[in-house]
Amino acid sequence: MSERQIQIITDSFWPLLKAGVIYTIPLSLVSFALGIALAVVTAMVRLYAWEPLKWIAGFYVWIIRGTPLLVQLFIIFYGLPSVGLTIDPFPAAVIGFTLSVGAYGSEIVRAAVISIPRGQWEAAYSLGMTHIQALRRIVLPQAARVTIPPLGNTFISLVKDTSLAAAITYVEMFRQAQQIVARTYEPLLLYGEAALIYLMFSTILSALQNTTENRLGRSSIS
């Protein structure tokens, strides 16, 4: 490796990491938080709502899971302006990722709720709780524990998927790397470096996921 290449790597490390910390991570966090809220609502609708609403929620999950995320982002950012709906890159990316997390997450939440034994509902009912009270106080807190490992995976996938936002001009870490490549013509070095920083993020998140699981798991092993 030449001195120039080493220079490029060291010069670009901080800008890349900075782009990761101030663009990639916030984009992931905002999309994930909104996505989880959407996932819970969608799961509840699919489990308990009035039939036509169930159908709409099912349709939404079907569309999002059945089409590529990149195509969805293009439709939101490049497609919608032709019907008069222009959205800036950041909100466009948030909408795209939120819809995605909402759809995949809703299946995780739904499966977790179904996995809670019938006896838990019956015990809650026998104490005079309504369906909503039993759901909120007894079933969802237990279901939440079940969802932590799969939602942790969803979050790690999301962090990596935010690189797709580069394609709709949002300057997150990967877009930043592309721009440096355009100046230096060192694609292998820069993309390798970006990959390494994604790997760093994923590793930290996996570790966080493990500690959360251990902490929450303590009281729930039966």
Binding site: P117, G119, Q120, E122, A123, A124, I138, P141, Q142, R145, S219, S220, S222
Partner: peptide, 8 residues
């Protein structure tokens, strides 16, 4: 029969 205590 199976107690059905709330495990959480």
């Amino acid at each position: 029969q199976s107690f059905n205590l709330f495990p959480h």
